[in-house]
Design a protein around this nucleic acid. Structure first.
Lengths: 348, 348
DNA sequence: TTGTAAGCGTTATCAC
DNA sequence: GTGATAACGCTTACAA
């Protein structure tokens, strides 16, 4: 007698008049006599039997679950990343435990502990806490941040993205460039955007300035700086690279409010490749992160299908796309209609 | 000897020189002698022991996991909903299995089967497939769609949202209204937006038209309709209610391209309350869904803490917010800075 | 209070 | 091939 309503293998075995082992063999694709197989399948069908993954996981020491540790789902970059990661893992027959940390160090550590306790087969994490304790027995892939030499790190080519931004601005006619950055203080791969930009400026011999604001502060210093450099309505720079699309868009509105025309007076490039919710176009001119490829690579690594197992740093190529804040014509999005505007996924 | 690297309760018991049951009791907060507790805790600490939730889940028939079945993470509405659901469940000590269905009926059914097989303690689902087979033994909460009389359904007050839109448009001076709808054919709670709108129009005695386009088609018929009604640059309607913000925004751009001024010539209201990624303001004038409350209510129900256990339909209040596509001044968002623009969550 | 042992639903290793 | 049976790591009567 089962206290629960769910039938077990035992029930199926009894119903089919075979031994427990035989049922297991049927469900695991091992050779079984034709007549037996039929009987087992009939019994399973009749009882509506489903194998219990918890029992299987305990026995096999394998759960087919991956932990996904991310700062938030409210930011489109993370949302799309998790979407691609989950979809990709689903295709490989894995479930996910999505943990939202809000970039809180406590929550980050707690999430690690929790998914480890739930015996995930691997963890893909985008975290900031510098001193995270991780179980060395569980495969880990870090996104956008190098833990050390042995945990694989997947990121976009931040340095080249920075170069690309500078090159594009110059190519589009800018004479004096500016780099603006807001973000966490912790050294992450994303911090190579500035150096990349700087390197290209030097190489091209174009004058530039760098303004960084970190973690705990507001963006106020940036706006102050911009105001100071707004000589008689015309700023003394004509090309800005922002370290995220979010910042780029805010700088854009701010300057427009000050009467600066964009892209006529100043051209602006962001980083990420966030798409417009309504029409699927880029929100601003931007360096696009290859989110799908980053997801696929992370999954390949975590599942041990890594085609590049000998290196722990996986830097994926970025590209430039125009989105109206530069003087070139807007590019179509890399992935058409990610919100499916013309088909109805938004029936909520 | 363990083949795995992970210590088990047995190891802890041996290390502490106590019996297995004692270790278990310590970890479950049952009374244990002070000296024993100390020894167990020391041993656990030393071995870095973590309880194996898979073994516990098998034994207890309780996994502390909830399945979340959603169409997508690329649409901000779903992304924010999943964010709130996950955060809320985390607070209650639960993990989630997030499944992305892309509104595909096959994937929807498969997701149900998968999370059921993983013995989740409950499922919160936003699905469209009409004939889903669900395990009656697992608690289910449906969002935005009524399955039947006994599975609880959580939704925003779609009917009243429709009324509210009509009332607002009239209040803001509109004389001839139009309702536009695109979405799946399946009857969902969201389809009450139109009837609500119509009901208010009748009550207020204001002329209106309704134009519905469903599932498989594109939005082309809507644009054709609009063009036909664009007499000499001035449309013969001055207030539009769209069943989603996405549609509202697209209609907005389309009309502006045709030379129609918004909100001067035509005022538009959408539904959902999607926020601008860069500044956290509403993207358009809209009927705001109470996403946080919907998440909390769903979690309460699924965990059996339902404060309203006697009714299976949970209709949560919506409100109107201005977002620049109507002639009132834009409202501040209900939740300040959901993308934290002035603090650095976007260090990617 | 603490120790012992049965059992959760699987898989895997034996003999037959 | 098939059928018993011993694990997997934990909780929980029950006995001491």
């Amino acid at each position: 007698m089962n206290r629960s309503t769910q039938p077990t293998m035992k029930d199926v075995a009894r119903e089919a008049g075979v031994a427990l082992g035989t049922v297991s063999r049927v469900f695991n694709g091992f050779p079984v006599g034709e007549e037996y197989r039929r009987r087992v399948e009939a019994a399973a069908e009749k009882l509506n039997y489903r194998v219990n993954n918890y029992a299987r996981g305990l026995k096999m020491n394998k759960t087919n679950c991956i932990g996904l540790l991310m700062p938030s789902l409210k930011h489109p970059f993370f949302a799309v990343l998790i979407d691609e990661l989950t979809s990709c893992l689903t295709r490989h027959g894995y479930l996910t435990h999505v943990m939202i940390t809000n970039s809180d160090p406590e929550a980050e550590q707690k999430s690690f502990t929790l998914v480890e306790q739930n015996k995930v087969d691997g963890i893909i994490a985008l975290t900031y806490r510098p001193d995270i304790e991780v179980d060395p027995g569980i495969p880990l892939v870090s996104i956008d941040r190098r833990f050390n030499d042995w945990v694989p790190c997947v990121s976009s080519d931040n340095f080249h993205g920075g170069e690309l931004a500078a090159e594009k601005l110059v190519e589009l006619g800018c004479r004096k460039l500016l780099f603006l950055r807001i973000g966490p203080t912790l050294l992450s791969e994303a911090d190579k955007r500035g150096p990349g930009f700087e390197s290209a400026c030097r190489r091209l011999g174009v004058p530039y300035e760098m303004l960084m604001v970190n973690d705990e502060e507001t963006e106020a210093p940036i706006y102050r700086f911009l105001l100071e450099h707004l000589g008689a309505g015309k700023p003394d720079f004509d090309g800005i690279f922002c370290n995220t699309d979010g910042l780029a868009l805010r700088i854009c509105s701010f300057l427009r409010e000050q009467g600066v025309r964009i892209p006529e007076d100043v051209q602006i490039i962001g980083y990420d490749g966030i798409l417009n919710f309504a029409n699927g176009m880029y929100l601003c001119s931007t360096i696009v992160q290859p989110i799908l490829k980053m997801a696929e690579r992370s999954v390949d690594i975590i599942l041990g299908d890594d085609p590049h197992p000998d290196n722990s740093s996986h830097v994926l190529p970025v590209f430039y796309a125009s989105g109206g804040t530069t003087r070139d014509i807007p590019s179509p999005p890399a992935v058409a209609n990610i919100y499916n505007p013309f088909r109805a996924t938004e029936g909520n």
